[in-house]
Design a protein around this nucleic acid. Structure first.
Ligand SMILES: [Zn+2]
Ligand SMILES: [Zn+2]
Ligand SMILES: [Zn+2]
Ligand SMILES: [Zn+2]
Lengths: 155, 155
DNA sequence: ACGCGATATGTTATGTTATAACATTACGAG
DNA sequence: CTCGTAATGTTATAACATAACATATCGCGT
């Protein structure tokens, strides 16, 4: 059983425990997100599934499935990029805290890291001082990854 | 001369100094952003200008003008909201550092605050440890503003 | 095994955000 | 005044996302 299958398997257990179902279609979409190894737009994901699994999805289906996966904590929507990414922590035991996403603006590779509680409370305090209550469930930042850095002019 | 006109006037000087032109159309769009007092999508901005100034823009024009305003530092694109907002610091002397935007997810009101150099270098270090170089010119966070908080269930 | 309600998927249409490509107009330096 | 550049107009289309309703599938109680 390869690494991806293991993650899918874990995802299925998570759904079972929550009383939801990781159907074949949903597995396929989640597998696409995991195997692509980067963030994909819904339409890129459709193409990926078509070319890698020969399975074809309508945009509607993919959006619905992505919504499901996000509710289950198995995928995340990256708002600054209009793309979707598999959760990097499906397989590791720890609870899923407020994530921070480092997104390569060149190749859409993503690192999902944990932000320190300090940093969060700092941000909350700053917002609060300005009369705003922080409700964002995640932080997203545009970056250049190591692989893409060499190709960048003027860095 | 009212407050908005003063800002527009300052914006015009800024453009002059940079060798660019704040044309009548561009002034209109910038005025719309300022007077609306919140973030607007390009299409909302078109409606605003139509209803408040009787001036009609094509989507194409507005996108071009928004691009111009952003290049001149007079407006900002809010990626997490797909909306645009006038810079809150056109009129105050200080240089424009990395901004942090607190965006009300209910009413699109925006506070543009400065993020402390500490906090930035902290974020940069964290990213760097993960093999990513932070290049984001701004930080955006989804919030609830004071006015909208009372209407929120379960807060 | 059967019937039924709930969940999931299929299908078509449409809304929303954004850019491409090319034509025309306005502006300003020489 | 004239010519090149910058700005705007116009039309078409790409890319992202949701609405509304039809059909199929699943799982439970009988
Ligand atoms: Zn995650
Ligand atoms: Zn990269
Ligand atoms: Zn600003
Ligand atoms: Zn609000």
């Amino acid at each position: 059983m390869n690494a991806v299958d293991k993650i899918i398997d874990k995802a299925e257990q998570i759904c079972l425990n929550r009383g939801t179902r990781l159907t074949a279609k949903r597995k396929q979409v989640l597998a696409g997100l995991i195997e692509s190894n980067k963030a994909l737009s819904a339409y890129e994901l459709i193409d990926f599934c078509e070319s890698h699994y020969g399975d074809t999805f309508s945009a509607m289906s993919v959006y619905r499935i992505l919504e499901f996966l996000e509710e289950e904590g198995l995928a995340h929507r990256l708002n600054i990029a209009n793309k979707y990414v598999a959760c990097a922590h499906i397989n590791c035991g720890h609870t899923h805290e407020t994530p921070q996403f480092l997104i390569c603006r060149e190749c859409s590779k993503v690192r999902e890291i944990r932000i320190t509680p300090d940093a969060i409370s700092n941000l909350k305090d700053n917002a609060s001082d300005a009369g705003f209550m922080l409700v964002t469930p995640q932080f997203e930042m545009s970056c250049i990854c190591k692989d893409c850095a060499p190709q960048q002019p003027n860095l």
